[in-house]
């Protein structure tokens, strides 16, 4: 696929994945059901990455695809399912039958995982929470020991907290609405766990719907969630969150998600789905062509514009 030569952090998708995501790394996916970095996930599958430790608060198709593709060795997270569409079947096959390979999971709660990301983002070794106490999330360990510890307040209140270890990532993925050429990234709508999850990454691979001139960013700096100097690579991927929604750009492709949920119930069905939508597609541009302009047009968001604020002084 012919992609334009660009200087600096802006690069083609295949190059960014090749450079930033080595086999065996700790990779953090993004978004609790919003702005998920699916364009990157597809490319990770196409490049047949191996032995990833995949980190996330709430996974859905992103983890199920990587597990089905045999890219994942371990998971640290809290939820893996297709939400209202049911169970994640690649995950089930991997855990229940070792197909296509065994994976291990160390599990926490959603809040627990974001606090682990927060600890990593802040450069702290652990973070306390008041949930998870008394549950098997604290007691049942998989590959981390200890996965958590209960501590009584050393300042004498008698209160108990669960201490959870920081969850650093070698690479954090973020799919944002827009950024400038430096990678100053702006996000709106729900933030999910993207704020802390992004900062947990030693490196950040940013994909965006649009690269905009810096003045657009500087006109509305409150919307920036990560400054460019924390970003290592930028890839412009319009519809890069498909089949999920990106606020102000497009809605969830419910038909696509339903089709996946139905076909992935068997391994053969999953393979035919992956051949059709991942391995048989050269890159993101071809993926969009395959979806077709008519389908994309149907998904495009109607405008609901914000008001304006006065940044003057």
């Amino acid at each position: 696929m012919a992609e334009p030569e660009v200087a600096g952090k802006l690069m083609p998708l295949a190059e960014a994945v090749k450079k930033l995501i080595p086999d065996g790394c700790r990779l953090r996916s993004g978004g609790i059901a919003v702005r998920k970095p699916f364009a990157v996930i597809y490319e990770v599958m196409r490049q047949r990455k191996r032995d990833l430790t995949f980190l996330m608060s709430g996974w859905t198709e992103d983890a199920d695809w990587l597990i089905g593709a045999g890219c994942v060795d371990k998971l640290e997270g809290s939820y893996l399912g297709l939400e209202a569409l049911g169970l994640a079947h690649c995950y089930r096959r991997a855990i229940e039958k070792g197909v296509p390979r065994r994976v291990l999971i160390e599990e926490y709660s959603n809040f627990g995982m974001t606090m682990r990301f927060m600890a990593a983002g802040m450069g702290l070794p652990f973070m306390p929470v008041k949930s998870q106490l008394g549950s098997d999330l604290l007691k049942v360990e998989s590959f981390r020991h200890p996965k958590a510890q209960v501590l009584e307040d050393p300042f004498g209140s008698g209160e108990k907290v669960a201490l959870l270890p920081a969850c650093p990532a070698d690479v954090a993925l973020l799919h944002a609405q827009r950024c400038d050429a430096d990678g100053n990234a702006q996000v709106w709508g729900q933030l999910g766990d993207d704020l802390w999850g992004t900062y947990a990454g030693k490196k950040v691979l940013l994909t965006v719907e649009e690269v905009v001139p810096t003045r657009v960013i500087r006109h509305d700096p409150n919307r920036t969630i990560v400054p460019g100097f924390r970003v290592d690579a930028i890839v412009a991927t319009p519809f890069g969150g498909h089949p999920y929604q990106v606020q102000g750009y497009y809605d969830t492709d419910r038909a696509f998600r339903r089709d996946y949920a139905a076909r992935s119930t068997t391994r053969e069905g999953w393979e035919s789905w992956a051949d059709e939508w991942v391995y048989g597609v050269e890159g993101h541009e071809e993926y969009l062509k395959k979806l077709g302009e008519e389908r994309l047009a149907r998904l495009r968001a109607k405008p609901v514009m914000s008001g304006k604020v006065n940044y003057g002084y």
Binding site: F111, Q190, T252
Partner: peptide, 27 residues
Amino acid sequence: LSIGDGCLVPGSVMLCGLTEVFGLLMQ
């Protein structure tokens, strides 16, 4: 269809993240 559905956004009073909702409002 999902907790991340875009239709939850317009007209809400505040948008933040999971850490803030659980950490500042729930905990």
